[in-house]
């Protein structure tokens, strides 16, 4: 068993571009769910809208990457408006239903045959990242020598992603310490109380939905760039649920919760994958053949990840960063 290689590759995933993309998506959800109490189950929808707008602008219409990204983000705000107008006045669960449906509708639409010439159907779009690639200052393998390394393009996307995540965290921090953020947290606790104090709850929820959706849009654009391709399978419902998992692991309503959550989540997931892969391979595997073969091994990571999540929820339901004191209040 090559522990060094396992740790190195797990770290590569934990800090890698995929983890960084999920970090962005989870920061958006943190604004929605962690601070405002909005149950957005359609973060993948926001990601798809921005990702596809950028990709189609470049690959289909031959327009500017920057313009495409900007339009993608604007469309995210529009989507937030469309979802919010009918649902934000209603009970919280309506938003959950509407967002999960909307995300699926968006995914089916961009993957549909009738729009094949714009969005490429189930195959999606490729070759839209020239502008982004041209900006890449890195060459050769980059990383910490002897510990972890990435290919130059991967390193470039992960740097951009983490910088964006840092900026988003900064914005979230600045907003949530302000009276504006206090109103959001108040809405999460009891929106009627906040209303009785003269705050336009509806407008605050809408702002929150838009901000979180925009951050989700950034995640969508980065996801497409990171893969150098885009197709509908990127934005399935499990994308949203992975982002929620990341948020809950790190701790909701904590500025750095999504950052820590995504690193831990992706590190563990790939660590388990590599561990079981190695433990079942070779002529004399660590785990005997009759117990587990190499085909079963690749699924074990989800089994153990699920187990780990259950333990986390039992022993540390507030997440890694959460405040135990807050949790004690729920029992009252």
């Amino acid at each position: 068993m090559d522990w060094h290689s396992i740790f190195s590759q797990a770290l590569q995933q934990g800090l890698g571009p995929v983890a960084a993309v999920y970090c962005l998506a989870a920061i958006g959800l943190n604004v929605h769910f962690g601070y405002t109490g909005l149950l957005n189950f359609g973060q993948a929808g926001f990601m798809a809208v921005a990702g596809y707008a950028m990709s189609a602008f470049v690959a289909t219409w031959g327009l500017s990457f920057w313009l495409g990204s900007l339009v993608g983000l604007v469309l995210c705000a529009v989507l937030a408006l469309l979802l919010g107008v009918p649902t934000l006045r209603l009970r919280a669960d309506y938003l959950a239903i509407v967002t999960i449906a909307a995300a699926e509708i968006i995914r089916q639409t961009v993957g549909s045959v009738s729009l094949l010439k714009y969005f490429g159907g189930q195959d999606g779009l490729q070759s839209f990242n020239a502008t982004f690639n041209d900006l890449n200052p890195f060459t050769g393998s980059v990383g910490i020598p002897g510990v972890v390394s990435w290919r130059p393009y991967d390193f470039w996307t992960l740097v951009v992603c983490w910088v964006l995540a840092a900026l988003c965290c900064l914005v979230v921090w600045a907003l949530m310490r302000s009276p504006w953020g206090r109103v959001l947290k108040g809405i999460r606790e009891d929106e009627d109380a906040v209303r009785s104090l003269g705050k336009n709850v509806y407008a605050y929820k809408m702002q929150s939905l838009m901000i979180g959706g925009l951050i989700g849009g950034l995640a969508g654009i980065m996801s497409a760039l990171q893969h150098s391709a885009i197709n509908p399978s990127f934005f399935a419902t499990d994308t949203t649920f992975f982002a929620y998992t990341v948020l809950l692991v790190g701790g909701a309503a904590r500025v750095l919760g999504p950052v820590v959550g995504t690193i831990v989540f992706w590190f563990l997931l790939s660590f388990l994958d590599l561990f079981f892969g190695e433990a079942t391979s070779g002529t004399n595997p660590l785990i005997p053949d009759w117990l587990m073969d190499s085909n079963q091994a690749s699924l074990m990571r989800f089994v153990f990840m699920g187990l780990a999540l259950m333990l986390l929820m039992v022993y540390r339901p507030q997440g890694i960063f959460g405040d135990r004191r807050e949790l004690a209040l729920d029992a009252r």
Binding site: R182, K185, G186, R188, E189, D190, D192, A193, V194, R195, S196, L197, G198, E326, L329, R332
Partner: peptide, 18 residues
């Protein structure tokens, strides 16, 4: 509420986690 008419609730509504 903004116009100067502020109420409280029979079932108290405090913002628990603040």
């Amino acid at each position: 509420a903004r116009s100067g008419m502020v109420r409280t609730f029979q079932l108290t509504k405090v913002l628990s986690k603040l």
